[in-house]
């Protein structure tokens, strides 16, 4: 392989003029993490609501929940990204659209909202599965004690369901984190975008991608470790 390796490249100044290539990648990492965390807040909240809707006895609520999941699961994430970024400002009333287009950091907000609603459909699936995995008698016991439906969910069903689905939720969180890279197509300067930019500026393809790869693997390990700690923390004695 006649490729000229240059691992010192990370400490050379990037042509952007504000630091080295290493700084460039780290700022990418920062955007990846911030975007993933913000999107997760939306995904967890919306996903929980949609997941609960799908387990309520009312047909209307179930239909709304099912429609949400089908809609967001059956359109590629990249297409959704374009819909939020290019299409939404055009179909809103003009003043709103203009406001959206002039928003500073628009790629960031778009990525957060898009990923949040997309991941919510996956969280909703897990929440529904978790609630349905509980014995039917748990809901009955809550109801029989006089708890309202909302109270039964809040105090009985959800605390147990979340414990059951912690492992799949961890992998959804990781998917969410990896999916932030799709937002490079709308100009979010996250880790993969920065590695790509580094490759374009320096022609050191493999150093740039190796660095990004190593960083992603480290984040994965950290998330898995933290999830393990949380799992042990919330574990119920005797189960």
């Amino acid at each position: 392989m006649n490729y000229n390796w240059n691992w010192g490249i990370f400490f050379e100044a990037s042509p952007e003029g504000n630091g080295t290539y290493a700084d460039m990648l780290l700022s990418g990492l920062m955007w990846t993490i911030v975007t993933a965390l913000c999107a997760w807040v939306i995904a967890f909240a919306v996903g929980s609501v949609i997941g609960v809707l799908r387990t309520l006895p009312g047909r209307g609520a179930q239909m709304v929940g099912n429609a949400y999941v089908e809609l967001f699961r059956n359109i590629p994430l990249l297409v959704q990204m374009f819909l939020w970024y290019f299409v939404l400002p055009e179909v809103l009333p003009e003043s709103w659209g203009t406001w959206l287009k002039q928003l500073p950091n628009a790629p960031f907000y778009t990525a957060v909202v898009c990923l949040g609603f997309f991941t919510a459909s996956r969280v909703a699936e897990q929440v529904r599965a978790g609630i349905q995995a509980l014995p039917r008698g748990q809901r009955m016991a809550g109801t029989a004690l006089g708890l309202t439906t909302a109270q039964t969910y809040r105090y009985v069903l959800l605390p147990n369901a979340y414990r059951i689905i912690l492992p799949p939720l961890t992998s959804e969180f990781l998917n969410n984190l990896k999916n932030t890279s799709v937002a490079l197509t709308i100009g979010l300067l996250e880790l993969t975008a920065r590695a790509r930019a580094m490759q374009e500026f320096s022609f050191q393809v493999f150093e740039a991608f190796t660095a990004a790869t190593v960083i992603y693997i480290i984040i994965n390990l950290i998330v898995v470790t933290v999830a393990g700690v949380i799992e042990r923390r919330v574990a119920v004695p005797g189960r």
Partner: peptide
């Protein structure tokens, strides 16, 4: 008051 076949205490 109701008592169930499978107890249905809240495990958490």
């Amino acid at each position: 008051g109701m008592v169930f076949q499978h107890f249905e205490l809240f495990p958490h």
